[in-house]
Simulated assay, not measured.
Amino acid sequence: MSEATFTFRVDETLKNEFAAAAKIRDRTGAQLLRDFMRDFVRQQQEAAEHDAWFRRQVQIGLDSAAAGDVISAEEVEAQAEIRRAETQRKLTGSAS
C-alpha cells in the first residue's frame, strides 16, 4: 500500500484533547484518523449502494405500473383487512 501525507489545520486544544483521548484507548491520533476515514468511506459506499438499489426498485415499480401491472386500492385494502383480522384473531387467542 502506498502512503500519502494528509495535512490539515486544527485548533491546538482539540488536537491535544484528541491525542489524550487516543492515548487512553492505546491508539495514536493517526491510527484513529485512519480508522475514521475508512469508516467514512465505507459508509459512503454503503449509502451509494443503497441509493442505487432503491432507484432500481423504484424503476421496477414504475415499469410495472406503466405496463398496467397494478393492484387496485380496493384490492390492497381487502388484503390488508384480511391480515388485520388474522392478527387480531391471533392476539385475542393468545390473550385467553
Rank of each mutant, 00 (worst) to 15 (best):
F8Y: 14
A95C: 00
V10H: 06
F36D: 01
A73G: 04
S94H: 14
T13V: 11
A85F: 05
T87A: 07
E12I: 06
T87I: 04
S96T: 03
G68L: 07
A80Y: 08
R89F: 09
V41T: 11
S96A: 10
I60T: 09
R38T: 04
A95V: 03
R34S: 15
T87E: 04
R89T: 05
V76M: 05
A48P: 00
K15Y: 11
R56L: 13
A22L: 11
T13D: 11
L14N: 02
A47G: 08
A78E: 10
Q57M: 13
Q43K: 03
E77I: 06
T13E: 13
L33S: 12
R84D: 11
L32K: 06
A78G: 00
R89D: 07
R89W: 10
E77H: 09
M37N: 12
R56Q: 14
I82M: 09
L91M: 03
K15H: 14
S64F: 03
E81I: 02
E46C: 04
A78F: 10
E74M: 12
E77S: 07
F6S: 02
E86Y: 05
A21V: 07
A95R: 13
A22N: 06
K15G: 09
D69R: 09
I60L: 09
F6A: 07
R84H: 06
A52F: 06
M37Y: 09
F54T: 09
V76C: 05
V58E: 15
E49F: 11
E77D: 14
Q79W: 06
D39P: 00
A85P: 01
S94P: 01
R83T: 02
D39V: 02
A85G: 02
Q45V: 05
S2G: 07
S94G: 00
R38G: 02
M37C: 15
A73R: 08
A67M: 04
S94Q: 15
E46V: 03
Q44L: 13
S94M: 14
Q88Y: 10
A52P: 01
H50K: 08
L32A: 10
A67Y: 06
